[in-house]
Amino acid sequence: MKNDIILSGVGGQGILSIAATIGLAAVANNLFLKQSEVHGMSQRGGDVQSHLRLSDKPVASDLIPHGKADLIISVEPMESLRYLPWLSDKGWLVTNSNPFINIPDYPSLDEILKEIKKIKNHIIIDADGIAKEAGSARSGNIVILGAASPYIDMPFESLEDAIKKLFGKKGDHVVETNLKALRAGKEFSVT
């Protein structure tokens, strides 16, 4: 088993809590794991990415080789396209449809969505809308994780357990809304 996942977004959008959830689940499943993160300069509203590598064998490189990613999970549509050189031809791209516009020359959203739809395996999800329905506008990132979960080779329950662990300190309510967000995301993908 091998899952090479690229997480992408804009600094401050919370891709690291997606990474942390998958990471906890991977440890619970006794998988080998490497997860490289971006800290420092780019966290100030710049583009950020994280390479997450899960395997039943030891993982050598911290970085995913070009053309080998099984999955891109993006919390921002334009950012999802930045990592296409890494996506394998069988890979999936799962992205939020809501743009984060903090640059003057941000392209038209229609054009971006058109490019995303050219990818054979893609899912575009209104994560912000679904998160609001689930009761927490801030868990859009977990909705996207839910939407990507069918393409991660771990039991869905282990992602749920990871959410419980990760958000446990913040109280039952936060855990519940995030679980709801995760399930709603999955629901969107499988139906």
Partner: peptide, 9 residues
């Protein structure tokens, strides 16, 4: 169409 997104204030 993908644009650079440098860090900003």
């Amino acid at each position: 169409l993908v644009k650079m997104r440098p860090p900003s204030f």
